[in-house]
Amino acid sequence: MNFVIFKYAFIKLTNIRMLFGLLIFSIIAPALSAFMPIDEPNQRQLISAYITGPTVTMLISFVLVQDAALNQKSLNDGEYLALLFSRPVIRLQYIVSKWLANSIIVNIYTLLSVSCYAIAANALHRNIALVLSPYTFLDVFLNSISYTALVIVISAIPFKLGIWVYMAVLYSIMGISMTPMMSLAPDKYSAVTWLGNFAFYFATMLKTFVVPSVDTFSILQSGSLLVTGILTYASNLTLYILFASILLNKREFSYASE
């Protein structure tokens, strides 16, 4: 890890304007969502999946991770990185340092977000006990780390292309968030149900391979899942970091190449 990169990434992320904007995002938005009527079990699950799932985490981390998007007039992050990599900085160290700094901040925001939702929902006497448990907080913590790693991979792509990849992943993730409420339709002869089933399979595959998440409750309750769950999580994290590093190593930092 490069401590200088980590330190300054952390200073950037605790920038007062950034803090102010994201605190609103982490406190007001989830608290307001607790006001939504949640009579149907599916609606309750949907809101919970939204609050604890990857969508919010990825939105927050994308805002934080990008070098070019929010603090540069130009959207060309290559010109910013050219100066950085003219210094003795190993690109893998840059990736790891940025990921660690961002994971800490993202976790603060997402845990705050989940807590605000839980407090507001309890205060309003919403029945959320089914979906929010201590395991949820542990899941959110671990998943925020892996979702941030995924965003780090996207941020290693040149920004102009990366923004499209991010949008595609985010839209897919919104679909993934629905999987707990989905099931395969029994009628396999209708084109509409075929399409629906295809979407379900696609979202499930994506959830398993692209955005893997930890279900600590299952891991801790069932001994057979323990090793597989931890291994999947650890291997995905490693792959994300390595892949981000490979992407960054392949990149050229000159306006002529952009």
């Binding site: 300054y8 920038n15 603090n71 540069q72 130009s74 010109e79 050219a82 100066l83 003219s86 306006y255």
Partner: peptide
């Protein structure tokens, strides 16, 4: 190195 189009950390 001084690049032709310097894009510095604007928040610093």
């Amino acid at each position: 190195f001084l690049p032709e189009r310097p894009h510095f950390d604007a928040w610093m």
